[in-house]
């Protein structure tokens, strides 16, 4: 059986909020290392990969592998019934028909309990090759969100160019063009504002802004976001969570003819 207690319901609320517009039905794969989810969007252009390590829960118990097929719309409805600070416990039997969610308020003695019916989801698992990326940019997640939002007003695509000069986000649209240039930056007082660029070779790739704007819904999960790029491979956008848990998005680059 599965029993996983989260100190704050807020974490799961934010994760589900960040991915529910990309993927609708997905398996939450539970085993003794934690709860994982991997799903592609309908167009197979973007992929979500979530890992909530067992250490992110206290306690965490999962005796055998359980796949919880959940509709994220249904999960969103139930998670709205939780206060952000509620303690959240997920429970399921070994061959479950439902997943049980218990929300406990630490301040009052209120305990609420919900069951969500599970679905049989035949989901293909993709092998994501280990990649040594040519460029890794770590930057404030709010800054990345702003760049994507600003440029999406002008164009459908953004080119991300990384060189020893820094990183340049460029777009061309019907009304004109825009570009934002960032350099490495260290703020001793506010390290969450740091921009770190780790480059082994120059990279230039083009991506759909629609998907990037969507990924940025995860900005509330982490102050910083990591962008990993190599020429001709999908972009990795990573929001690190505590205890080595993470929410990652992959996006296939656009290719010019």
């Amino acid at each position: 059986m599965l029993e996983a207690r989260l100190e704050q319901a807020n974490l799961l609320k934010k994760v589900v909020d960040a991915i529910k517009d990309l993927v609708q039905d997905c398996n939450f794969d539970c085993n003794d290392s934690g709860i994982a989810l991997q799903a592609m969007d309908n167009s197979h252009v973007a992929l979500v990969s979530m890992m909530l390590k067992s250490e992110s829960f206290s306690p965490f118990r999962c005796d055998r592998n359980i796949a919880l097929g959940i509709n994220l719309g249904s999960l969103t409805k139930v998670l709205r019934c939780a206060q952000n600070e509620d303690i959240l416990t997920l429970k399921a039997e070994d061959a479950p028909d439902v997943v049980n969610l218990v929300f406990e308020s630490a301040e009052t003695d209120r305990i609420s309990e919900y069951d969500i019916k599970l679905m049989d989801i035949d989901q293909e698992h993709l092998g994501i090759p280990e990649t040594e990326y040519a460029a890794t940019i770590t930057m404030p997640s709010a800054e990345f969100q702003r760049i994507c939002r600003d440029l999406s007003a002008l164009s459908e695509s953004v080119s991300i160019e990384c060189s020893k000069e820094g990183v340049k986000f460029n777009c061309q649209g019907d009304i004109g063009s825009g570009s934002i240039h960032l350099r490495s930056h260290t703020n001793v007082d506010k390290p969450e504002l740091n921009v770190e660029i780790d480059l082994t070779e120059p990279v230039s790739l083009t991506f759909s802004l629609k998907y990037l704007v969507n990924f940025c819904k995860a900005s509330g999960l982490s102050n910083q976001v990591k962008l990993c790029l190599s020429n001709e491979v999908p972009l990795l956008v990573e929001y690190a969570l505590s205890n080595n848990s993470y929410l990652r998005f992959y996006l296939a680059p656009k290719i010019g003819d």
Partner: peptide, 14 residues
């Protein structure tokens, strides 16, 4: 014109 390939090109089914 710009072409948008899918991720299936890059990641293999397990």
């Amino acid at each position: 014109p710009i072409h948008q390939p899918t991720l299936d090109t890059y990641f293999c089914s397990r």
